[in-house]
Design a protein around this nucleic acid. Structure first.
Length: 933
RNA sequence: GCGGGUGUGGUGAAAUUGGUAGACACGCUAGACUUAGGAUCUAGUGCCGCGAGGCAUGGGGGUUCGAGUCCCUCCACCCGCACCA
């Protein structure tokens, strides 16, 4: 009887399905464990072998935890809304709802093929109205909340209104906001009041600069723009001022940084988030402009260098630049602004050349009264700080380069440490040549300057962030509609009384209407703006109101999906209270690093808001985060001789010719040897291909690259499963190496793991005779030792997510039992339990063959017992002066008898030394005895 | 430039607290059984050397009886951010 994995796997997949083996209750008396994968976006390309890596790891860990006695939630779902789905729909001429359904069905099929323990009844899909109803609901909560800086948390907007009614906005006014009193507030009309509130709401409408992508016809969030082009498709982007929804994530900047300390995430990941938030402490200083009412505020992290200010630089985009420019410089300034505008974001990033223009205006130094020339330059960014800097060329590399380029004299405030050759940017030593702070250390000087600024009321200490508020509007179709209706151009959520909507229209969800075309609406609006029946809505008074026509971005649905899994069918709330209290945080979250600053930051932000508002009892969503590495493709190349159309030379001989390497489909290559006959059939162009062989073979070149269709290196898990079975596939993915590391896929290596499963099978069956070998006899000490050694090792490995070494240990155990010719039921029963999380199909089959009741999946994990692995005698390596010489044996009863190991070791070694002189005997950590002579 | 990470055989990699480096596999080399093998099994396989032995964890230095592991320094590669004031 052979190991017929196809039959076995089909049988057990059907069994699990019928018996709903993986169905799981919302709550339980058992301790909980929540394991989560980053849910996939179902693309048209389907899964390749790299995708399931993390899913296999979580599946194994979830099964392991469940066998350890936990109630485990390990759900799966689909991130179905978003830009790529719509682009794909446009390309293929189908409705995104249709393509999304199709892709999801395909994904489910592929995932089921691998044998995961998902309870598909709990699956969620962000584009499902029953789901996005609650995404819209959370949006309304964000809209009706504000961040109270006093309590440092989100509160209902009603507490803000109460505050404004009581005392006006003096205590909470934001930068550039007019101060008003309680009386003023009382006198304001509805529109003015709502405008004020809008400046506090966590979801707010603002006319602000955003990234606009012409090709995609929509705005993008900062994290969706990478290296000056759109993340999706790599299209150019530009800054544009538009009326847009934003989420006020910047209010949470500090809490998002502080929260990281409590999380078990990799340092790299935390660092990425910290950098993205980009907190920096310094001072804000206001400079007066000569012969003008204008004041320019700058942000600096080095207030101690204030006496080294030789010029100021403004971002060219600032609107007051032309206002302050002197008459004779106006033309130059305009020319420079035009030049900057003409440069795309990409060009700016690619070539960082020094450019700038003097405005003709001067600022007045706040302490020395010195006139400071004001320049504009593109190296100062409008979006960071105040868009204006005080330039200290003696202490800053960029300022130094700028001063050199434009021949601006440099003031030395660092004594000998500033050579005049380069800026002195080290933060060491004292400040010199600086009036009242001369001779002070940097920190002293900074404090003294800030105190002086406060005294003169021209500045203060300031914390600045790189993080911007998150753009939340997309001018696209395939996303959640906003639950927003405008009345007199004031936005309201649909449940607000002021709209006087009919009761049916006040209910969530606001359904996404069906459209036939995804063309843009008028004036940069989305496709929804073209649908008359959607845009206009009649209220109970017969007034015609206007709906918001933008949709929410892709990250809206993924910012809270982990909560929905807890009670996916709940229809009274976004999450069932009981279930949420039970499941709490995600204990283990597995996914790639690409979501470091997008999804993971937004999800943390939403969780904190929901926590503040009292809907959750935890304020961090993901306790432990594990970043799986990428499985790369191993590409193969053939070398076409230059100037020919179909002459190919084998890799070893290619240097004798001038060649062009061409990707060749990996399925046509065995290792490095090309199947030349199939290559000729691969494409019509190659039908007449001629080969220059070496040793009668055509050897291909190889390179590790990202797995992608265009590189012909994609391996489909379905093919692997068909050929080797999903148990082999699962184990091999784990065996490949540590889960966090990126590594290339190598189909050849899978044989080793497959051989192991066949070997395991042979512990149960003689393949030739078909005889069942398992016997019900008492195991020997040696067999028990082999088993328990493995239980110990594998359990320890599981706890530290070292799946590759676990698989190795299975192989060792199988080899040992084969060598011992052990077919004892007691041993094999525990062994099968150990293997079950990794290879559930074969485990179920063998479990049944042994005559056990029920499913091995529901069995208890084997308990490790120390007594079985204590050896009667143990070999200890002995070293003289650290040099290993020999092994000596002595009884291990020491541990049982509570004798100090050192004493025992001394005794044994003394005997072994036979009276030879020695200085010291060291017994190290129970592993080695070292004799110093 | 800043931040994070990684360097171990031909390859993927083990070595959890410093204690016999290279487990477990792939590949390769022999051999067995076979009409055949891309099936299965057995043996070998870090490097140099006939050998005893010597050398080996990116390079150099240090701490230690003992270092892949700890410290310093240099180098290479990968990832993230990047004119961030």
């Amino acid at each position: 009887m052979k190991y017929n994995f196809n039959d076995i796997e089909r049988k057990w997949k059907a069994y699990w399905n019928e018996n709903k083996t993986y169905q799981i209750a919302d709550t339980s008396d058992k301790p909980k464990f929540y394991v989560l994968d980053m849910f996939p976006y179902p693309s048209g390309a389907g899964l390749h072998v790299g995708h399931p890596l993390g899913y296999i790891a979580t599946d194994i860990y979830a099964r392991y935890k469940q066998m350890q006695g936990h109630h485990v939630l390990h759900p799966m779902g689909f991130d179905a809304f978003g830009l790529p789905a719509e682009q794909y729909a446009i390309e293929t001429g189908q409705h995104p709802a249709v393509t999304t359904e199709k892709n999801i069905a395909r994904y489910k099929e592929q995932l089921n093929n691998i044998g995961f323990n998902y309870d598909w009844d709990r699956a969620i899909q962000t584009s499902d109205p029953n789901y996005y109803k609650w995404t819209q609901w959370i949006f309304t909560k964000l809209f009706h909340s504000w961040y109270n800086p006093a309590s440092k948390k989100a509160e209902p907007i009603s507490t803000l209104i109460a505050l404004l009614e009581r005392e006006g906005n003096a205590s909470i006014a934001k930068d550039g906001m007019d101060i008003f009193s309680a009386q003023d507030w009382a006198a304001y009309d509805e529109k003015t009041r709502r405008d004020v509130l809008m400046q506090y709401r966590l979801a707010y409408l603002d006319n602000a600069e955003v990234w606009w992508c012409e090709a995609l016809n929509t705005v993008l969030a900062n994290d969706e723009v990478v290296n000056g082009v759109s993340e999706r498709g790599g299209h150019p982007v530009e800054k544009r001022k538009m009326s847009q929804w934003f989420l006020r994530i910047t209010d949470y900047a500090d809490r998002l940084i502080e929260g990281l300390d409590s999380l078990d995430w990799s340092e790299a990941m935390k660092e990425m988030q910290r950098n993205w938030i980009g907190r920096s402490e310094g001072a804000a200083v206001r400079f007066k402009v000569q012969e003008s009412e204008r004041e320019i505020e700058v942000f600096t992290t080095r207030p101690d260098t204030i006496f080294g200010v030789d010029f100021m630089v403004l971002a060219p985009e600032l609107d007051y630049v032309s206002e302050i420019a002197s008459q004779d410089q106006k033309e130059e300034v305009e020319k420079y602004i035009q030049y900057v505008k003409s440069r795309s974001e990409r060009e700016r990033m690619a070539e960082k050349k020094i450019s700038g223009c003097f405005t003709g205006a001067y600022a007045i130094h706040p302490f020395s009264g010195k006139a400071i020339p004001i320049w504009i330059s593109e190296y100062v960014l409008a979006g960071y700080g105040t868009g204006a800097i005080m330039a200290v060329p003696a202490g800053d590399d960029r300022d130094f380069a700028f001063a050199q380029h434009f021949n601006i004299p440099i003031t030395n405030i660092f004594g000998d440490r500033f050579t005049g050759e380069a800026a002195y940017s080290d933060k060491q030593g004292t400040i010199e040549n600086s009036d009242f702070i001369s001779g002070m250390s940097i920190t002293q000087a900074a404090q003294a300057v800030i105190a002086a600024l406060k005294d003169k009321n021209i500045g203060t200490s300031r914390v600045n962030y790189r993080l911007r508020d998150a753009g939340f509007s997309r001018q696209r179709y395939w996303g959640e509609p906003f639950p927003i209706v405008y009345k007199n151009d004031i936005p309201y959520t649909i449940d607000e009384d002021a709209l006087e909507l009919n009761s049916a229209d006040r209910e969530l969800p606001v359904l996404l209407p069906h459209v036939d075309s995804y063309g843009p609406g008028p004036e940069g609006q989305g496709p929804l703006a073209n649908i008359e029946s959607f845009v206009h809505i009649q209220n109970s008074k017969g007034e015609t109101l206007r709906r918001e026509t933008n949709t929410m971005p892709g990250y809206a649905g993924s910012s809270w999906y982990f909560l929905r899994y807890m009670s996916p069918k709940e229809d009274k709330a976004f999450v069932n209270e009981e279930a949420c209290k039970y499941w709490q945080q995600v204990d283990l979250y597995v996914g790639g690093t690409e979501h470091a600053v997008g999804h993971l930051l937004y999800a943390r932000f939403w969780t904190k808001v929901l926590f503040d508002l009292g809907y959750l009892s935890f304020d961090e969503p993901f306790k432990k985060l594990l970043n799986q590495g990428m499985i790369q493709g191993s590409s193969r190349f053939v070398y076409r001789i230059a100037g020919t159309t179909n002459q190919f030379v084998s890799a070893g001989l290619r240097h004798q010719y001038e060649t062009h390497p061409l990707h060749v489909d990996v399925s046509l290559v065995d290792g490095l040897v090309l199947d030349t006959a199939r290559f000729k059939q691969w494409r019509a162009d190659y039908a007449q291909a001629q080969f220059i062989l070496e040793d009668g073979k055509y050897i291909c070149g190889a390179e590790t690259e990202k797995m992608s269709k265009s590189k012909y290196n994609v391996v489909n898990p379905d093919d692997i499963v068909r050929e080797y079975g999903s148990d082999t596939f699962r184990m091999y993915e784990m065996f490949l190496g540590p889960i966090e590391m990126s590594k290339p896929w190598d189909t050849k290596g899978i044989e080793g793991v497959h051989r192991f499963l066949k070997k395991l099978w042979r512990l149960f069956y003689d393949e030739q005779s078909g005889q069942y070998l398992v016997v019900d006899e008492a195991p020997t000490a040696e067999e028990l030792r082999a088993l328990h050694k493995s239980i110990k090792k594998i359990s320890e490995d599981m706890e530290r997510f070292s799946f590759n070494t676990s698989v190795a240990q299975f192989m060792i155990l199988t080899n040992e039992l084969t060598e011992l010719n052990c077919h004892k039921k007691a041993i094999l029963t525990d062994m099968i339990k150990l293997i079950c999380p990794f290879a559930p199909h074969i485990a179920e089959e063998l479990w049944q063959q042994m005559g056990h009741e029920g499913s091995v999946i529901k069995a208890d994990y084997p308990k490790f017992e120390e007594k079985y692995i204590v050896e009667s005698e143990k070999n200890y390596p002995v070293a003289i002066n650290g040099k290993h010489r020999t092994n000596i044996s002595f009884p291990l009863t020491a541990e049982a008898a509570d004798i100090e190991p050192v004493v025992l070791a001394n005794e044994v070694v003394q005997k072994w030394l036979d009276g030879k002189a020695h200085k010291k005997i060291i017994f190290v950590k129970g592993r080695m005895i070292n004799v110093i002579v």
